[in-house]
């Protein structure tokens, strides 16, 4: 349902995406690893049309994102939700209003139903008791969870997670991992998970790939990816091996 074909993108001199191509089908969870600043967030922004490729195509459910009109783009953004790296909550709305925002803005849903769905979504992330606080008054991890609740409440067909566990404590990180697994378990959703968290990568990924020099390389199921001899991947995998834990 998401397809990138030979996408190139530069910012000034900096050639960030260099022929990025991949496809993602329903039910797949693609984990993208990569060093900081390689362009992972840039790739995700192309999928929802926040950035336009210099060349190449981005296709979501058969629609070319670059040439979609306003209505087409709205449809794409309804299908594909984006969890921002920083959370990106609206600062002057409470957590509850933030989570309700996408539903309120559709303007066709009765307010009781909105409230139900918002509470359910906040509850699944253990955020109900913070629902009436303002984003400035909760911790970074809570903001992340609130942002995740805002994504889940939209019930999208595909979710782009930009570092969903960064800034969370390890226990909450695992909870978020389980939540992503749960969201994906229906087998009807696609997801791209950008992360540096190797535990999360192996917990949720049906496939893992490395973002390297502007392309996705070594894409493979976790068990195969683990055997890769790519030096950067070996470096990443080493962070997973701890003393006392049998390494593969």
């Amino acid at each position: 349902m998401i397809e990138l074909i030979d996408v190139h993108k530069s910012f000034g001199e900096q050639h960030v995406l260099r022929g990025m191509s991949f496809t993602l089908e329903q039910g797949q969870t693609l984990v993208v690893l990569g060093r900081s600043g390689t362009g992972k967030s840039v790739t995700l922004k192309h999928v929802v049309g926040l950035l336009q490729p210099d060349s190449g195509q981005v296709i979501v459910n058969g629609v070319d994102v670059a040439s979609a009109d306003a209505e087409g783009l709205r449809e794409i953004r309804r299908q594909v939700a984006y969890l921002f790296q920083t959370g990106a909550l609206v600062n002057w709305l409470s957590v509850r209003d933030n989570v309700a925002l996408p539903l309120v803005e559709r303007r066709d849903m009765p307010s009781e139903e909105i409230r139900e769905r918002v509470d359910e979504s906040l509850g699944s992330l253990d955020m109900l008791q913070h629902a009436d606080k303002m984003p400035a008054n909760i911790s970074g991890g809570m903001r992340k969870r609130a942002a995740l609740a805002r994504v889940l409440v939209q019930e999208p067909d595909a979710i782009l997670y930009d570092e969903p566990t960064a800034g969370l404590d390890p226990i909450m990180g695992r909870t978020v991992g389980r939540l992503i697994q749960e969201v994906q378990s229906s087998g009807e959703r696609a997801a791209i998970v950008v992360t540096h968290d190797m535990d999360l990568a192996f917990q949720v990924g049906t496939e893992i790939a490395l973002h390297y020099e502007g392309q996705l390389v070594e894409r493979a199921p976790p068990e195969v990816f683990e055997q890769s001899s790519h030096p950067v991947i070996r470096e990443f995998l080493r962070t997973r091996e701890r003393p006392g834990k049998a390494s593969p």
Binding site: V48, L50, R77, A81, Y82, T86, L89, V90, N91, E105
Partner: peptide, 20 residues
């Protein structure tokens, strides 16, 4: 300042993603 802060912290992008 308010809108500028939103712009540099991806909040405006997030609004666009919600089709707002």
């Amino acid at each position: 300042a308010e809108i500028g802060t939103m712009a540099v912290s991806e909040e405006i992008d997030a609004l666009e993603c919600l089709s707002i």
